[in-house]
Amino acid sequence: MGEYFSNIVMILSKYWQVFLVTGLKNTLVLAAITVFFGAILGVLICLGRMSRFKPLNWVLVAIVEVIRGTPMLLQLYIGYFIVPKILPIAVSDFMAVAVALCINSGCYQSEVFRSGIQAVDRGQTEAARSLGLSRRQTMSRIVLPQAIKNILPALGNEFIMIIKDTSLASTFFVGEIMTSYLLVKGKTYLTMECLMITGAIYFILCFVLSKLLGTFERRLKAHD
């Protein structure tokens, strides 16, 4: 046990930059990109699914079901190989994987948005429409502001999931924390110690985020 501990201290003193500078930075950048573009994509998919044009709904349902029904790692592989081929610009491995993550997260987030919007009482829409507001005004001024409060807890979970899911991108050595683990383990052969360090970083990251989101939620609720 003492040996483990001294090994961990040794690894941290020697390789802390690999974990906490390169790895952490790349994980945060990858997660931020995924959350941001995933949210945009999620809103678009969600609006498309609520549109009166039914074929659009069917196509989007099919896409969401395929993404939800296949492993994320498989989607990352497909993104890794296909994205550089279809985009006209040069794409790094990092970006190719990021695109796949965004599509995956967009599909999950669209479901979160949709359930949040549907949870707003239909009477709210009826009241707004009866006052002569358009569908768009009703959505943006009445339904969405109320839906956000329903959405936030689930969206917080989704963000935490994304942080953990970015670890799958290490399969392609894109430089996030799990890649740091692979690098340092390859150099030191101290597998368990490296895993402990990596696990601790993920845990602290997710725990802090979860607490922050909790505070944010309580603040929103306080306005009611």
Binding site: D121, G123, Q124, E126, A127, A128, R129, S130, L131, G132, L133, S134, R141, I142, P145, Q146, D224
Partner: peptide
């Protein structure tokens, strides 16, 4: 239809006031 609904007020059984707006904003929004 929106133009015509503006001239027809409606009051519902379950009130359907907007909970995220202040009382005054409920009235001024439309």
């Amino acid at each position: 239809i929106n133009l015509h609904r503006q001239k027809m007020g409606m009051v519902f059984q379950h009130f359907n006031v907007f909970p995220h707006l202040s009382v005054k904003e409920n009235i001024t929004l439309a």
